[in-house]
Simulated scan of single mutants.
Amino acid sequence: MTIEGTGKNGVYAGDGALGLLEDCTLSATGFPAVYVGAKAAPVLRRCLVRDTDEDLSQDDDAAARFEACRSSNVRTGTLPTAPEGEAVPAAAGVAAPPGGSGGASTPAATEHEGAGEDQLPELLAELDRLVGLDGVKREVASMAKLMRMVKRRQEAGLQPPPLSRHLIFAGNPGTGKTTVARLYGRLLAALGLLVRGHLVEADRSALVGEYVGHTAPKTTAVFQRALGGVLFIDEAYALVPAGQGNDFGQEAISTLVKLMEDHRDDVVVIAAGYPDDMDRLIDSNPGLASRFTRTLRFDDYSSADLVEIVEHQATRHEYRIPRDTAAALLARFDAVERTERFGNGRTARQAFQRMTEQHAMRVADLDDPSDEDLTVLQPADVPAVVA
């Protein structure tokens, strides 16, 4: 079924409404494509929303369920969407996702999810390949083992131990927090403890409104996008500005605490930010301290770590870094002052970019550059430290 060009909503589920809508495409609607009223609990399955301003608007008390739905070319998207590769209807001018022909059966989806635990060794190996972060990697690997045991106890009909999956990531910018959060979600999905394991990133601007009554709906919309996965709140301490007691950020925190309680098995929340500022966030609401009981500390990268990051970048882009260039890089990173402007991994990536620019300028003057000329980064290409 196709619903197109409506003056208002494409689908309107009024207060308390129920029902099932399957294999439907909605596009070019005047109002949000789908509206769900208070205490309404419709099920939308394998629906596609495309080419419209907003895909979903729903009341705070709505209980709609979205199964294998997707949005495409939508300006404001809050619809919980299907994982990549899960089929949705193919409308005119819109190709079906890879691996689907327009209608995925439920048994197939269940079989795919059940095979997830086979991915654990590769996911843990991917975690171990990250540069530095030795303490973080040990913590995450330990939590994966613990949660695997929790799952086995549940399967055996035993009560699981008390366990909070929500985390504080305390560290300076550029220390790999987002990368680890994404892997954490994939690990939990492989264990069957999250449906999808996808990552939704947010910050204060995505959660806090500009006027009374605006914050709770904004926070709820972002949270709903993260259902089945991980909500990663970067610079989370900004929700509690220092010295400002009356701020809409408190409303965002209260809303998050309630949603985390209502959906305790459906989502993981990771709050990230500077180590010294995260205590202020936790102390701002008693509900946060009881939900965020574990903190992972992301240390700054050492100079040797930064060289390794540059070497990874070089390999990825088909450059080579000989030993003398690596030694020049190490000396360069040792000389960098570790102020609050220090970017950790970003500093390494910026150094690599400047090296390739300098290399290009140097090689461009050669009449007939060899393969070695085109690929080898020399010590002369290492940028000088700017005071």
Rank of each mutant, 00 (worst) to 15 (best):
G171P: 02
V222M: 12
P379H: 04
G7I: 01
C47G: 07
F169I: 03
V136P: 10
L146I: 15
G77E: 13
E261D: 15
A216S: 04
S302T: 15
P42L: 02
C69R: 09
K145W: 07
V363S: 12
T255D: 11
P217M: 07
T25L: 08
E210P: 06
V195Q: 15
V49G: 13
G16Q: 01
R50T: 14
T76G: 07
T356Q: 13
D23P: 04
D305S: 11
T339V: 10
D55R: 09
S71A: 13
S370N: 03
G171H: 06
M260F: 07
V136D: 14
V74S: 03
V240F: 02
A104C: 03
N285W: 09
D59E: 06
K39Q: 05
Q358G: 08
D283H: 01
S254C: 11
A141M: 10
P83G: 14
F66Q: 10
Q154N: 08
L130M: 15
P97C: 09
R323G: 15
V382S: 14
L330G: 07
R70Q: 12
V11D: 07
L193D: 12
P217E: 09
A348M: 13
A90E: 05
P32F: 01
V94I: 14
S101V: 14
R138T: 08
D277L: 12
A360N: 06
D234P: 01
I233V: 15
I233G: 06
F333S: 11
S71R: 04
I253W: 04
A221G: 14
R75Q: 03
A206L: 01
I168E: 14
R75H: 04
A360F: 13
P217D: 02
G99D: 03
V136Q: 11
Y274C: 09
S105K: 00
G229R: 01
G100K: 01
T52I: 03
L127Y: 00
D367L: 11
P107S: 09
V43S: 08
A380L: 09
T255L: 07
L188G: 03
E251F: 04
P286D: 06
T325D: 10
E111V: 05
D51K: 07
Q313A: 11
Q353W: 12
E210I: 08
A189N: 02
Q250I: 02
S27D: 05
P161Q: 00
V11E: 11
G229Y: 02
D367I: 02
K218G: 04
T347N: 14
G345H: 13
E308W: 01
F169M: 15
V74H: 08
G213K: 06
R153K: 12
T347H: 12
R346E: 04
T2I: 07
L79W: 09
D134Q: 13
T325G: 13
E67A: 03
A115T: 05
